[in-house]
Nucleic acid binder design. Structure first.
Lengths: 234, 234
DNA sequence: TAGCAAAAATAATAATTATCAGCTATTTAA
DNA sequence: TTAAATAGCTGATAATTATTATTTTTGCTA
């Protein structure tokens, strides 16, 4: 994966994904490269759980992660998915609080860990970097506000249509047109806040109506316009 | 209100509420005081609307503001209330996007406006200030995640109980024990994402069950323990 | 302070969604 | 490779919540 072994990994990662680190000076990137620690984490592993103290942030080089909260009676609520180029855990580090979400690896991942102190070192040295992280936080905040409005106002059917469109945009499709993420019906239900059975029912309705095709957990969107219409997104 | 007319308003405001500006140097506070513009805004006025370009952030010195999005078919979704010491509009300024929420004045307000350029000037000059704003954003993000989980998983009854407790915590109670914020039933419905009639019905159920007392729009919580039990918050 | 408009309350009905139970298919791990 | 576990599916039923319509109350202002 590393095209040029003379370049520090962080420089390359940054080039590939345009991470939050792209405002760092070459020296600061070098510093980052020296203090970070990189690990391979297998699918299925839980990186950290809600309530844990975490020692730093994770920068994702490879893989897909599920970020979720545990709500009423242990029910999982998926907050977001994280993918290469994104950073997770900064909320807890910045606020000095225990993690407010759990993170599970959905697809084998390569993660770089940056200690809180090292992060703070960079934040204090480079105001532009702080602004960069602030922009990420603000972007997520805007997305969260949209999420709130959707869950509060839309029906389960509308939300399912919307989430299918989102997943397609976020993860893209493969050669066969299938969305590049494998989620169980239960996970889909835990994104939109409904019962697993409802998702199953609605998916087969969508299929019957010719809106989608199903191949196990993989989904192909056939009639984008109708799906958009159902989702109420414009 | 200004106890000492020798001190710039921003210094006093900062002392009263411990705003995001408390990491600024005295010179920077002085600068802020010179570039900000303060206005009195009457109850009922709309400060800005979703989609507007806003020229800066607002720091609240006095009043209560309602921050909301317009969702499906124009239905209002209340995202949060803002009160003295808080700052609004920073999300849009930081991301250089149009406002993603509308803001309405619920109680006569005194607002200080700070231009985007002036904000950026401070952000670039003082990394600590950036971290401070980042902390605010992260705090709001954490709250938004909780909000998502609640709306997605709890019943309307649970959410109503929870929001009553929240409002009491956030705005406090007066001598008579009434929560210090006046919301219409419709606004309560627009916080928890339900129909106005449902809120009306549940409030009168709560009243019948001896959990609350109602005096017009003012609400008094009688049996906190039972309300907590209903809300499923621990 | 009468008159009006907005908000609140109530009831009946309809629609949506959850829950439960039982079954089949698919993965996973021994 | 097979057993066990997990996930997926379907139907029946129950519960919750939305919608509609109507009446009453409240608060505002002319």
């Amino acid at each position: 994966m590393n095209k040029n072994f003379d370049e520090p990994l962080c420089v390359q990662c940054n080039q590939d994904f345009k991470t939050i680190f792209h405002k760092l000076t070459p020296e600061q990137l070098e510093y980052l490269n020296n203090v970070k620690s990189c690990t391979v984490v297998k699918k299925g592993r839980i990186l950290y759980e809600e309530g844990n103290r975490i020692s730093g942030i994770f920068c994702i080089n490879k893989g897909i992660l599920k970020v979720y909260k545990t709500g009423v009676e242990g029910k999982e609520q998926i907050i977001k998915f994280a993918k290469p180029g994104e950073v997770i855990g900064y909320r807890s580090v910045i606020n000095g609080e225990p993690a407010c979400t759990s993170v599970k690896i959905l697809e084998d991942a390569v993660l770089c860990h940056i200690n809180s102190q090292d992060l703070y070192h960079l934040l204090k040295e480079n105001a532009e970097f702080g602004i960069e992280l602030l922009q990420i936080a603000c972007k997520e905040l805007g997305e969260a506000n949209n999420y709130i409005t959707d869950i509060a106002q839309k029906s389960v059917r509308e939300r399912l249509a919307e989430i299918l469109l989102h997943l397609k945009d976020e993860f893209g499709i493969n050669e066969e047109g299938l969305i590049n993420i494998s989620l169980t019906r239960e996970e889909l239900a835990n994104i939109i806040g409904t019962a697993t059975e409802s998702v199953i029912r609605l998916l087969s309705e969508f299929k019957t109506e010719g809106l989608i095709e199903l191949q196990g957990r993989k989904i192909k969107l056939i009639d984008l316009n109708k799906i958009k219409k159902i989702s109420n997104v414009f």
